[in-house]
Every structure is written in C-alpha cells, then in structure tokens.
C-alpha cells in the first residue's frame, strides 16, 4: 500500500513535469478495444473499396496540346506509350513528372508506383 502524498506546496521548485503522455489519461480498456477494432475496420474497408478498382491512374496534362486519355496500370508495370499530343507552334519534348518540366519520365524503363499526373513538355518552334 503506497502512500502517495500530494504536495500542497505550490512553490515546489521547477522540475520537468511531463512524465508520460498517458499519465492523466482516463480511459477504460473497453473503450480502447473499440478504438482498435474501429481502426482496423477502417483500414480493412478502405482496402476492400480500393481493391474493387485496383491499379493506379495516370493522367496526362497536355498543357494546351491535344487531349490524351488517362491510363490505369498496376504496380510495377510500364506505361503504355501514349499517342504524342500536338500543339500548334510547338514541338512535343516528352512527358515530365513536374509542371516545370525538369524531370523527364522515362516511359521505356520507369515502372508505375503510384497515382500520378504527367505534364507535356513543349518547345516553341522557331
């Protein structure tokens, strides 16, 4: 039987006071069980929903050029070579992962790992 006396002295000198995040948590094990079950349920439901339509969507932003249809690919697959878009007064330089057109997407070797948008690169005709 522990005697834990509360110190009524407010001028207790400063000591680091945060001892454990759960120190003052008042929650029953039952409630925690429910949270755990709920979390697992959310995960499972989300995964199940996703699996109805598996794969990643790759959208193409032709940035002023002709439209290119989005593709749906599985993880680790290559992009199907899309039809190059056309734009008046420009030549098409390839698909880029960023809108600023620095990082070229290597359609021959790079595999799909997530949803993404590819941006068309344009060079102005002289």
């Amino acid at each position: 039987m522990e005697e834990n006396r509360q110190n009524p002295n407010p001028e207790q000198e400063q000591l680091p006071k945060f001892r454990g995040l759960y120190r003052h948590v008042k929650i029953s094990v039952k409630a925690l069980d429910r949270i755990i079950v709920a979390c697992i349920a959310v995960i499972v439901i989300l995964v199940a929903l996703e699996l109805r339509d598996p794969g990643f969507t790759i959208t193409f932003d032709s940035r002023g050029g002709s439209d290119v249809a989005p593709q749906n690919q599985m993880y680790g697959e290559l992009l199907e070579q899309p039809e190059p878009p056309t734009r008046e007064g420009y030549t098409f330089t390839g698909w880029y992962t960023d809108a600023a057109c620095y990082e070229l997407w290597d359609t021959q070797n790079k595999t799909i790992e997530t949803d993404m948008t590819l941006y068309a690169g344009w060079e102005k005709l002289e």
């Binding site: 989300l46 995964v47 929903l49 996703e50 699996l51 598996p54 794969g55 990643f56 969507t57 599985m74 993880y75 680790g76 790992e113 997530t114 949803d115």
Partner: peptide, 10 residues
Amino acid sequence: LTMLGVDSSS
C-alpha cells in the same frame, strides 16, 4: 498495399 494498387490518398 501499393502492389495491390491502393492509391496514395487512401
């Protein structure tokens, strides 16, 4: 999950 094709927002 990625291999199953679960997208990044999920």
